[in-house]
Design a protein around this nucleic acid. Structure first.
Length: 104
DNA sequence: TCACTGACGGGGC
DNA sequence: CGCCCCGCCAGTG
């Protein structure tokens, strides 16, 4: 656990209900655009920091639910997003560009 | 130290 | 958004 992780979690915490963000957006916001892999890696530890964080609102640049297998069940991530009004088909968020949110 | 592994992204085809 | 390659870097054994 270090400052880099903390900053990632703080950004995740700011993602609004019904919106999603990408790993790359977070990496770029933190000034490490080329290290988006680390953002995904940091998500492995997200529950160690705060289990209330909306980790399900973070997807890859294509809107795919690549992190679904890191949840308690493989369908939980999709269920949480659908509960927020997001439509998902074949693990891909529909109308993705309209659902995106960027750190500020 | 080395090798390998990713919740990734961009570029090329 | 299919496939592949390369850059990225912390964690692991």
């Amino acid at each position: 656990m270090n400052d880099f992780y903390i900053r990632i979690y703080e950004v995740v915490q700011q993602i609004p209900y019904g919106k999603v963000c990408t790993y790359g957006d977070i990496a770029e916001f933190l000034g490490t655009k080329s290290s988006s892999r680390l953002v995904g890696y940091a998500m492995n530890n997200i529950h160690a920091y705060n289990s209330e964080l909306p980790a399900h609102r973070v997807v890859n640049r294509l809107g795919m639910l690549t992190g679904k297998f890191h949840f308690e069940t493989p369908t939980l991530m999709q269920q949480l997003l659908e509960n927020e009004g997001i439509v998902i088909k074949n693990d891909i968020i529909q109308d993705f560009e309209n659902k995106r949110w960027f750190p500020k």
